[in-house]
Each structure stands twice: as structure tokens, then as C-alpha cells.
Write a protein that binds this DNA or RNA. Structure first.
Lengths: 191, 191
DNA sequence: GTCTATACAAAGATAGAC
DNA sequence: GTCTATCTTTGTATAGAC
């Protein structure tokens, strides 16, 4: 896509302010003031606050590569533990690259509760994400890793809940050593 | 405490509306309309919207007995697994008793991010809750339960993240079998 | 203790000039 | 494509009668 300079300035300013203060506490006035543009200018690109938020969500998530992180094609019996532990490392990596990411993600989930259009995007992401985890553990089972929980669906949901718990804490700014907790969680999964 | 009928009507209406629609989307106008009282009447009891929210939080949490759930005094080597599994049962129990509980709790955590006074209450709860989990696992270790994670602090944080992950999903209305996931999680903790 | 009426600020959104 | 000016609604909160 070919975005104009002003369009991107609005997207990035909205992203930053929503991550910092939340969707409801971020007004159109705040955004245009911070971006150094006018209200009329913003409404030229986005027909409503909701549309702007959806565009920001899409812009942010398209840059995040889930598939690569949970890709099981290169995982063998010799390297699987390292590969799994790498998932935990993404917490530090994302944090270093963009301190607002987890906060914005929390805000996105909160708004999904209250807006059907936004909930639709969350459902899409969930429907992409869940099978990736399931495939990953199915692959592990097939290459001979002994998993304590035999039911792949239960196991995947458990992993999903834990990963999301960690992400939410990151978003809340609570200082937990996510990498350490993830590694400990992983080791418990395997006999 | 001896609360007046109107006071309790306001508290309960605010609780319900905030759980359903969130703090920001719940206006004083909504509350007084739903409660069937006047705006002047509400401001007679609460000096601001923030004060009302804090009173609702305090009212709700005082009725919830954390200590009893994590009490380790009756736990022995023979009954520990059943006692631990009981913690998972609270999800269904609370749900049956009050369908708004987890939604309100999510809203409380969200607002704690944006309001220092509300964050204070969350910190208090965390500081009460964390040592209870730590004591529980210390007790288990002492009575001879073999825990895979030897570091009690890491173990407790892991449990905390998972429990909270489950609660948040409950609040989001996502249908996961929390009891099953909790049981599977528990079994992984023990050798 | 409860009400009505009102003040005041801020929100989202639009019209129309340039 | 960007601006200023303006509309309309809604929000929190207060004053003062009963």
C-alpha cells in the first residue's frame, strides 16, 4: 500500500496515544493536536474514530509475523527445546523494538469487548493463531516428544492462556521475567 | 456497615453497567436512569464518578474470600491434589453466582492502568494474593510434594499468570473449560 | 435525602473556504 | 488535501427548592 505522509502520521500518533492512555481517553482533539494537523484533515482520511482505530489495528498487526514464530517445519527432536524457548524471547525482542506494542494489544482486546467490528478482527487473529499452536504440538508429538498432556487441543489452549497471560502482564507494565516463566512453563509440559 | 437502600441501589447498578459496558462507556446519566433515581441523589452519596467506582470495587472485593481458597492449613499429602483442583472449581462457582464478576474484575484492572487511586487498590490485592500462593507451595514442598520448578517464587508467578489468564478469558466471555485447563496445568507442576 | 434545572467543558462530527 | 468555524450531543458536576 502507498500511504501518504499525513495518513501515516495520524496512524502512528493514534497508535502511540491509544497505547499510552487507552481508546476512550484518547480524543480526536488529542490526536490532531499531537500530530500537528487539523480535525478536518483527519476526517478527510477517516470517517470516524472507530474506523481510525480499526485501521491502526490492521496496520500494526500486518507487521507482526505470527507464522514465522510458530513455524514447525524446521523443528527436530534435537532442536525443539531451543525453538520453543525462542517463543519466550519474542517478549524481550518486541519490547526492545516497540515499547507500546503490548499496551496497544491490551487496548485492542478491551475494545473488542465493546465493539462488534473490532471483535471481528480479534476473532480472525484467534482463528489464525490457535491452529498454529495446535500444529506445532502435533508436530512435536509426531517427532517423538513426550508431552504430559495427551490431548492436543487442551494442551494448545493451556499454552494460549499462559502466553496471553504473559502478554497482558507486559501490557500492564508489571515487571515479570517472561522469558524465565515461559521456560519453566515449557519444561513442565514435557516428560 | 449499614448502607441505605438508595446507596446500595447505586452501587449495584454501577457494578452491573460497568461490568457490561466498561467504565468509560458507563455515564452517570446511564446509572441514574437505570437505578431510577436522580443525578442530585447520586451526588449526595458520591462526590465524583471516580469515588463511586472505588466504592463499588471495595464493596465487591470485600465479599470475596481469597484467604479461604488458598488456605494451606488443612492440606496433607493425601488430599493436596483435590484441594488444588478446588481452586479451579471456583471459576464455575463464581460464574453461577454472579455472571458479571469476571467482567467487572477485568474493568477494574483496566482502570487501574489509568488511575493512580484505583491502581493502589489493585496493588493491595496483589500484595495479599501473591504471598498466599507462595505459602501454599512452600507448604506443599514441606509436606513432601515433588514440584518440578524448585524456585517457589518462579513457581508462584507462573501459577499467578495462568490463573489470571483464565480469569481474563472468563471476563472476555471466551468459552474455555477453565476447570479442565487448570487441572492439566496442575498435573504438569508435579513430578 | 431526593428532586429539577442548569452550568460548563469536551466529545465526535460536518460545512465550506482556500 | 488541509484549514477554520461551527453544530450537536453528551459528559461531569453543582445550586437550590422541597
Amino acid at each position: 500500500m502507498n500511504y501518504s505522509k499525513t495518513y501515516l502520521k495520524i496512524i502512528n500518533t493514534a497508535y502511540k496515544l491509544i497505547a499510552e492512555n487507552g481508546y476512550d481517553k484518547t480524543s480526536i482533539n488529542n490526536i490532531v493536536k499531537e500530530a500537528g494537523i487539523s480535525k478536518g484533515g483527519l476526517y478527510h482520511y477517516f470517517k470516524s474514530k472507530e474506523e481510525l482505530f480499526i485501521k491502526v489495528v490492521e496496520y500494526i498487526f500486518q507487521s507482526f509475523d505470527f507464522i514465522n514464530i510458530f513455524n514447525s517445519s524446521t523443528i527436530t527432536i534435537d532442536n525443539y527445546m531451543d525453538k520453543l524457548k525462542n517463543i519466550g524471547k519474542m517478549f524481550s525482542l518486541i519490547d526492545a523494538q516497540d515499547e507500546n506494542y503490548f499496551k496497544f494489544q491490551n487496548e485492542f482486546m478491551i475494545q473488542a469487548l465493546r465493539d462488534e467490528n473490532i471483535k471481528g478482527i480479534l476473532t480472525e487473529i484467534y482463528n489464525e493463531f490457535m491452529p498454529m499452536i495446535e500444529n506445532l504440538f502435533l508436530h512435536l508429538k509426531n517427532i517423538g516428544v513426550s508431552l504430559r498432556e495427551k490431548n492436543i487441543k487442551t494442551l494448545s489452549e493451556k499454552v494460549f492462556v499462559f502466553l496471553d497471560g504473559l502478554m497482558i502482564y507486559k501490557g500492564f507494565g508489571i515487571s515479570l521475567d517472561c522469558e524465565k516463566l515461559w521456560n519453566s512453563f515449557l519444561e513442565d509440559l514435557i516428560i
